[in-house]
């Protein structure tokens, strides 16, 4: 297991390299002169030329590439002109906020969605099952923007229970911090919660009809134990896949949720950067998010192995038979 993790971690390096190359190419493929775009229509030719020189855009492409890779290797993601700050600082500023929102949304989604799916599957075709499925169908197709606005209108404007926008800091105390967190978390949690419920239900249904569940019952175990231990652990694999996807997506920044609630996270950073045509920031954050995807993927692969002993050590994902 230990060697597996180490080997898989080294496997990440080429992937990250390829991602970096792709990000580099894409930003160079964007039509138009980035310097001109950044400075806007009023800029003089001299200003644009100065910025081009500054950004290294006048160097041959391979020099630019080597420069970029060299910088990356030393942990330098570049410096934003609009923010006048190293990209690393911008990301380190925003990423914790995104992380807080994502973690609390995931906790809500998991704590509600997974048990709902389990109960639904163990009472298949009951009224309860149908209700859970209906609610989760509404959940997955929920327009997040609309939901966020409705939550704000009702709980902030009408009832005044929670602040409408912004993020509290822990310095203000735990209660205001949590109050700021609740509405955005629920908004962000809705789709994953419904997705978890549906995936859990369908994979539990598949597992519950297996022979080993009958074996577990024939041993005299109680039904709770049969479902939560014997069935659930077998149903985890598809759930982990979806969980990994959701985590990656959330950590990349929840653009809609962060916009509705003015949450200072990664999503807003990217949107603002695109708005301001700050391509250095776009390049740096996209690369950062890509790295997160890759790392989360690795963690999910490791989790597969933890829950499923049949996954082969020599390949990344083994068959089940």
């Amino acid at each position: 297991m230990g060697t597996y993790i180490i080997r898989r971690t080294f496997d990440l390096l080429p992937t990250i390299f390829v991602v970096a190359v792709i990000v580099f190419i894409i930003t160079r493929l964007i039509p138009g002169d980035p310097a001109a775009v950044m400075l806007g229509p009023q800029a003089s030719v001299e200003d644009i030329e100065a910025l081009r020189e500054n950004l290294g855009l006048n160097d041959p492409l391979y020099i630019q590439f080597l420069q970029y890779m060299g910088n990356l290797a030393t942990g330098d993601f570049g410096t934003s002109l609009t923010y006048n700050q190293p990209i690393v600082n911008l990301i380190m500023d925003r990423f914790p906020n995104t992380l807080i929102l994502a973690v609390s949304a995931l906790i809500i989604a998991f704590m509600v969605g997974v048990p709902a799916g389990i109960i639904s599957a163990s009472k298949q075709n009951s009224l309860l099952d149908y209700s859970v499925m209906l609610v989760s169908l509404i959940g997955v197709s929920m327009p997040i923007f609309w939901l966020g606005v409705m939550l704000v209108l009702y709980f902030s404007v009408n009832l005044g229970w929670f602040p409408a926008t912004g993020m509290g800091t822990l310095d203000d105390g735990l209660i205001p911090f949590i109050k700021h967190l609740i509405l955005p978390s629920i908004t962000l949690a809705t789709i994953p919660m419904a997705t978890f419920a549906r995936i859990t239900r369908s994979s539990m249904l598949e597992v519950i009809s297996q022979d080993y569940i009958k074996t577990a019952r024939s041993k005299g175990l109680n039904e709770f134990w049969v479902i939560c231990k014997h069935a659930f652990k077998n149903a985890l694999t598809p759930l982990l896949t979806v969980l990994g996807m959701q985590i990656s997506m959330m950590l990349g920044g929840a653009v809609l949720t962060e916009t509705i609630f003015s949450w200072p996270g990664m999503g807003r950073l990217i949107v603002d950067a695109i708005d301001k045509r700050d391509f250095v920031v776009v390049q740096g954050t996209v690369l950062f998010i890509a790295v997160i995807f890759v790392v989360v993927n690795l963690l999910v692969d490791i989790m597969y192995k933890v829950v499923n002993p049949r996954v082969n050590y020599t390949t990344s994902k083994g068959g089940t038979k």
């Binding site: 297996q210 022979d211 080993y212 009958k214 074996t215 577990a216 019952r217 024939s218 041993k219 005299g220 175990l221 109680n222 014997h230 652990k233 077998n234 829950v307 499923n308 002993p309 049949r310 089940t320």
Partner: peptide, 24 residues
């Protein structure tokens, strides 16, 4: 009835490839 199952009356099944839980 649960205290009968596996204790007083046990059962084994046709297909040993599927009747053991693969993850334990």
């Amino acid at each position: 009835m649960r205290s009968v199952r596996g204790n007083e009356i046990s059962m084994i099944f046709q297909d040993p490839m599927t009747s053991l839980n693969p993850v334990f």
